[in-house]
Design a protein around this nucleic acid. Structure first.
Lengths: 134, 134
DNA sequence: CGGGATCCTGTCAGATACTG
DNA sequence: CAGTATCTGACAGGATCCCG
């Protein structure tokens, strides 16, 4: 039998539930990496949820070709976006959110709206905390 | 004037909006680290949103003392939980979600529910992707 | 234009040992 | 019991060069 609390798998022990590393962690780890949120933000507001490589690169301050490529590969691997390659000269490549990728946006938006509301307070907490142990 | 799209700051350029690194990324990076979600999950389901250090340590498979301490410090710094120290012998320390910490749970739950629904599909996409370029 | 291949670096997780 | 201190290897990510 598989037990879950709030959808998270755990095993019962005599001292209470013990969670194991699980899916939410893996996905949030991906979203939490340095560039993924920025890439998704751009595609979220783009017409057709679709942009070419150079538009993404120019739109994200400080990202290198390599990191953009890696970020896009990971998102493609997870099925969150599709890569469209046009063998023209010069070549053109467009990235587009999949249905699954687009379906994630409301959940992400819900979370980011919480963050926006609470961000000033978190920032204040950090400064208080840091000052208390300078 | 400060422009935002979906709450994210950006600067306008002749080629369209350019986002800058912003608060959502920082918070998600924290949540995405290896242990934070597991710590929050435990506190979320604990009575009074409150647990002592050893309960957390025992409840999270594989975490080291050091990493649990660091994870808890970061959450405390962000104002998401409080540390209660009882100078007994042996000492006892309890960690408790703050109001802000508890207010984050619904947003987190919304996100993790999306993940649970889509996780099998993401896993399938990864395997397809990996096989295609073995 | 898009991106693969290499090399290099700082950062951080993990293990271990010690302490009030 | 609940930490802190120290060391180490692994790895994320930046810089650079080249290629169809």
């Amino acid at each position: 039998m598989d037990h879950t609390i709030h959808g998270r798998p755990y095993e019962q022990t005599e001292d209470g539930p013990r969670f194991r590393p699980c899916a939410p962690h893996g996905v949030l780890a991906r979203l939490g990496d340095k560039w993924t949120i920025l890439v998704l933000s751009h595609l979220a507001v783009a017409s057709g949820h679709r942009l070419r490589f150079s538009e993404l690169k120019h739109g994200i301050e400080g990202i290198t070709q390599r990191m953009l490529t890696l970020t896009l590969r990971n998102l493609e691997r997870d099925g969150l976006l599709n890569r469209h390659y046009f063998p023209e000269v010069p070549p053109r490549v467009e990235y587009e959110l999949t249905d699954m990728g687009a379906s994630m946006l409301p959940a992400l938006e819900g979370f980011t709206s919480w963050i926006r509301e609470n961000w000033p307070r978190m920032e204040a907490c950090r400064q208080t905390f840091d000052k208390a142990r300078e």
